[in-house]
Amino acid sequence: MRIGELATRTGVSVRSLRYYEQQGLLDPDRTAAGHRVYTAEHEACVVQIQELFQAGFCSSVIQELLPALTRPDQDASLLDKALVAAQARLESEKRSIETEMAGLRRLRVRLGLAPDTHVTPQDGPHDSLQYTQQLRLIIETDDFDEAVRFYRDVLGMAEQPAFATEGDDRVSILNAGIATIELATPTHVRTIDAIEKAPTTPGPTLRIALEVEDTEAAVSSAREHGAQTLAPATHTPFRTINARVQGPAGWQVTFFQELETLEERATREGFTTDDDRPR
């Protein structure tokens, strides 16, 4: 069928069909003269694309999902990986939007168009350069599989790609909505200590990791308020800039500055979920 007939059969405009092709969502056959020709499979694909758009997915996410959804055998593992990749992309886009919104709020404050609602511990107004974007709780556990089962499989927290090597070096970062929980074996904790050049302490370490816009600025601000630097800003193999300070009540605080998106990171060696990591 030609593009006009496909538009009539699916209720999608010709302009939209051409947009789908531009976005890599639809790949029509061509005649010797270069005219587009569509089959029943193309028609089914257009219906699938429409359903995904109506579900709220953007074209970039649909491009990730479509190959798995249109496979005749509906390969479950391929579909699951596509859904994980789509979720990682959406989480990355959400964080980017939140960062831009925070920038707009700071600009409004500087221009005097909005009150500065951030306060110091003494309840006085101040112009803060640090805006925490993510709280990550690091839980060191000897029974890693049971912890993953409970948080990921029982509580339903989605797992995102995380960096680790092999063997007992295991880590699982689970999305808890507005925060993430990181489950780590003692081996992984020691690995991160070595990467960050931070002192190793006996037994489980109480540590909070905070995503910030500028790690060095965050460390400088913490040091000005009396915090001891445990590890200076360091570029890590998992594409962040990390530093660590000693917080109150025995808790260590890691500041980490993201250098790339989750989508970009998922393509790098060493980044995967625990089930897919070689051991």
Rank of each mutant, 00 (worst) to 15 (best):
Ala233His: 03
Pro125Lys: 01
Val154Leu: 05
Pro199Gln: 09
Arg190Gly: 00
Thr120Ile: 08
Thr187Gly: 10
Thr8Leu: 15
Gln228Asp: 14
Glu166Phe: 13
Leu104Lys: 05
Thr191Lys: 06
His126Ile: 07
Ala162Ile: 07
Asp123Arg: 12
Thr205Met: 06
Ala44Met: 13
Glu269Met: 08
Arg149Met: 00
Thr261Val: 04
Ala102Lys: 11
Ser128Val: 12
His42Gln: 14
Leu52Tyr: 05
Ala194Lys: 04
Ala222Cys: 08
Thr215Gly: 06
Thr236Arg: 06
Ser16Ala: 11
Ala40Arg: 15
Val109Trp: 04
Arg207Tyr: 00
Gln48Phe: 00
Leu52His: 10
Ser59Phe: 11
Glu41Pro: 02
Arg2Cys: 08
Ala102Arg: 12
Gly156Thr: 08
Thr229Trp: 03
Tyr19Ile: 08
Val148Asn: 03
Ile49Pro: 05
Ile173Thr: 05
Leu52Cys: 09
Arg2Pro: 01
Glu224Gln: 13
Ala231Ser: 00
Val154Thr: 10
Arg244Gly: 04
Leu66Lys: 01
Leu155Val: 11
Arg268Leu: 15
Leu129Asn: 14
Ser13Leu: 01
Ala33Ser: 15
Leu17Asn: 07
Ala217Trp: 15
Pro186Tyr: 05
Pro161Lys: 07
Gly103Leu: 07
Ser172Asp: 12
His235Arg: 13
Arg265Ser: 14
Val84Cys: 06
Ala7Ile: 09
Lys197Asp: 15
Gly24Pro: 02
Ala76Gly: 01
Arg265Tyr: 12
Ala33Cys: 11
Val84Arg: 15
Leu83Pro: 01
Val12Pro: 04
Gly177Thr: 12
Val37Leu: 13
Val154Asn: 02
Pro186Asp: 02
Leu230Tyr: 04
Thr180Tyr: 09
Lys94Phe: 14
Arg207Ala: 01
